[in-house]
Write a protein that binds this DNA or RNA. Structure first.
Lengths: 259, 259
DNA sequence: TGAAATATTTAGGGCGTGCTAAAATCACGC
DNA sequence: GCGTGATTTTAGCACGCCCTAAATATTTCA
């Protein structure tokens, strides 16, 4: 693609030409690492994308040259504003696609990730907005992840997990990663889906299994699983009655806008 | 992509790894040239794909090596059975996508080609079949092109065009290419869509404009446009009355299966 | 029939993305 | 404060797909 004389091309712009598929994948991965751990190390990116570290270094050089991120050698990378916007654009597409696939086309929630992963690079903005409209402009995807708006804002808070609960506490399930189909299938089996109410009934010592009330059923789950399920304290814990931990634990609204 | 150790990968297979996006585009283009003109010349493929002829030679070499087509140097190419199946798979996706975009997501028929062109490479078989099912398994796309079945059969007949009509003849519009948005917009303006009834009222000499009855309106169109609109003789031309050309002009059902 | 026009292929590159192996740098514990 | 292991980068290469220029084959027509 060195010197093509691309003719007129299209009307419903797909993506700026420099946002190739691999580039979008890198930006997305870096964005996710950055928001989770504050910075993205070469090795982490390599793991996330299943690519050799040396390949990451190479790509990072190109992305930095294009102004999509800043790179301090041996120190990791940080997205620029432009890079962040591009990443959020891809994430928006991904999540709207996942929502559309489950709600309109009947996909199971453990099957949408791979499909969305491919479509997110091919769909035009127009298509994404049409899907969003058809869904009534949803704000979360089927796994509970917030959908960035078209102008690039997301409600990206750090939530607690089931593993963080104190015994007796009741919360609402918010979210789980979309990346592990097996986990998702299992969660569906035990009726753990975003929105369901969860109470920690009992916690075995030494990182042992947790006994939960999930909706109207009772389940015993391992601590690994528990650590992957994000939850939110119930807004008003039913006036009077039990006095659990902190009633007003609404975490500060980290709007994740500029930096 | 030389020696990746791809891990486990997926469940809802996207496409065999050797069917890259450019490869699918080449096969599709070659298939279309082949069915229209019997064989595909290097230059024609180059024109169809907006690529230099030398690039076509190079790609053809690779495709022949993979057994997707046969190449006699200086003589053009022909798809093998494998190549033909791959081409029809892509065409099926393209046409189902176009149908879905117009019927479900409200796209105008002149906007679907580009979008489908990109999505056809990314959608899984599963997604395509779900869309097809949601549409009630349509057999033609919005432009009247037949949709190949999943097992690779198409009803690919050679139809007449408006330019072939004799004055006074009435036919049903069948199909028009999806590739020229301007043409499609204009056709929509004058209410020429697949299914509409068309009568040739008058033909100006020297390749001049044609006067048509289109549905209930009257239109004058140029011969270039006329040559691009495929039509079909009416099954039973209304017992008695006018005696137009050949009543049983159902062209031999060229099922286009093996060769 | 033979030369000009046209079509096709070869030769020689470029760029993007990936890999391995080896070198450079960093980080940490003794 | 320094060695050692982990991390990161550099070096060198492969492959897919595209390009231009030049060579070669085919076709056409005077």
């Amino acid at each position: 693609m060195s010197a093509r004389t691309s003719p007129a091309s299209a009307q419903s712009a797909a993506a700026p030409p420099f946002l190739t598929e691999p580039v979008e994948d890198y930006l997305k991965a870096i964005y996710e690492l950055e928001t989770r751990t504050g910075a993205a190390a070469t090795t982490d990116v390599a793991n996330a994308l299943q690519v050799a570290p040396a390949s990451v270094t190479g790509m990072i050089r190109r992305l930095a040259a294009q102004g999509l991120l800043d790179h301090v050698p041996y120190r990791g990378v940080q997205l620029t504003e432009m890079g962040r916007r591009a990443a959020l654009r891809t994430i928006r597409r991904h999540r709207i696609l996942e929502t559309y696939l489950t709600q309109v086309l009947g996909y199971a929630w453990d099957r949408v990730h791979d499909e969305a992963e491919r479509l997110e690079h091919a769909a035009s903005d127009d298509l994404i907005e049409r899907m969003s409209a058809a869904l009534g402009h949803p704000t979360v995807d089927p796994h509970g992840a917030p959908i960035p708006t078209a102008d690039g804002t997301v409600d990206e808070r750090n939530h607690r997990t089931i593993a963080d609960l104190t015994v007796g506490e009741t919360v609402r399930m918010l979210r789980v990663s979309d990346k592990d189909p097996e986990l998702l299938r299992y969660l569906a089996e035990i009726a753990m889906q975003p929105g369901v109410s969860i109470t920690l009934l009992q916690r075995a010592p030494f990182d042992g299994p947790l006994t939960l009330r999930v909706g109207s059923g009772e389940q015993v789950v391992g601590s690994t699983l528990a650590a992957q399920v994000l939850v939110e304290s119930l807004p008003v814990p039913e006036a009077s009655a039990s006095d659990a931990g902190s009633p007003s634990t609404r975490p500060r609204s980290a709007r994740k806008s500029s930096r």
